[in-house]
Design a binder for these strands. Sequence first.
DNA 1: GTCTATAAATAGATAGAC
DNA 2: GTCTATCTATTTATAGAC
Lengths: 208, 208
Amino acid sequence: MPRAAAALAAPPDSRARVFAAAAAEFAARGYAGANVDRIARAARVNKAMIYYHYKSKAALYRAILRDMFDAVGTRVRAVAAAPLAPEEKIRGFVDAIAAEGEARPHFPPIWLREIAEGGAHVDQATLEYIRHVLQTLGGILREGQRAGRFHPANPLLIHAGIVAPLMLFLATASLRRKLGRGVPEITRDAVVTHIQRITLAVLEGRIA
Amino acid sequence: MPRAAAALAAPPDSRARVFAAAAAEFAARGYAGANVDRIARAARVNKAMIYYHYKSKAALYRAILRDMFDAVGTRVRAVAAAPLAPEEKIRGFVDAIAAEGEARPHFPPIWLREIAEGGAHVDQATLEYIRHVLQTLGGILREGQRAGRFHPANPLLIHAGIVAPLMLFLATASLRRKLGRGVPEITRDAVVTHIQRITLAVLEGRIA
DNA sequence: GTCTATAAATAGATAGAC
DNA sequence: GTCTATCTATTTATAGAC
């Protein structure tokens, strides 16, 4: 989905505008709550155009899902392939997830919802992309273990410890505003650094 | 909502059955995806009964939200009020969230979805309950700081570090099955212990 | 590629009998 | 408290003209 992905910034053609508008709509209201008319309006296209470009609302949604996880997978693999120490790769992994979550604001909310419904809309291709991310992290962990710098650890647990708080933070900007005063401020960098430190502390066995 | 809450196990009256069926439906499909006819069928009541007991689909959903956060708030305050060392209270806090997430299987998915839509359905009462949970954690942190055992920390960050991975773990049981082989197993207790350790390590400044 | 008009199904909500 | 029947609005999707 390179065309759609590249178009997130300033959608030139109607297909890319549909993609971008749909991503925002699905993020804000979920698959069931999303409305094709509203997507059309936001994309400044006629509703029929949506069905010209995509087979159905479901197919459009799945395209967005695939694009999301494909992008994270790619970014994360780049980190794993770079000539870096395992510790740096872990930091890079955290950064990659955060960067992707920020590059695509629809990513965190959609991700949370997919978790909530047990990946109901996740097709085989997307499932592969998700596996890739997990396997990439697993590879970094094994590399660190072979180098004698990481203790053995469950990749799933490490992954959850990284991704969950990140997505939560990125997705709760508006909710935090709603909670208002009494809830202390917090910055993106603080969160990323915090997660990097914790993850490395766990991997290096510095946590009793 | 004590009546509805107590009825989660074996719903005796129709109102409680509606409540329980609706909780499951909203958890599985989200607010927009939930279907009142389906709720009626699952609750073994006539659809009109739902509107007899609750003003609308939205009101029914809000009642479930309130019940959830009220319950966590209560359980968490009990931990904070107990005569325990701050460290034990933190462990208890983690346990309380996990226990509540397990006692109400609809809790984790609904929680994730509410985060995703920025608390769109959260009314004032529910907002209060959520604040209570945050404030309770804040109280435990201050107590530990006064006792010289905890370093200063952002309650929101600590809270996210606890709740996010827990909810994620509890909500991903089915998705983990879908990912299938290649994804290592993981137990509830391992997750809880892991989160307790990490949180305490952070609070005690054992993480560089 | 783009638009109008509309088909067809779904779903929230209620009136009114019992 | 419970049920039948139905109204009404919404919404996905498409046929067909340009």
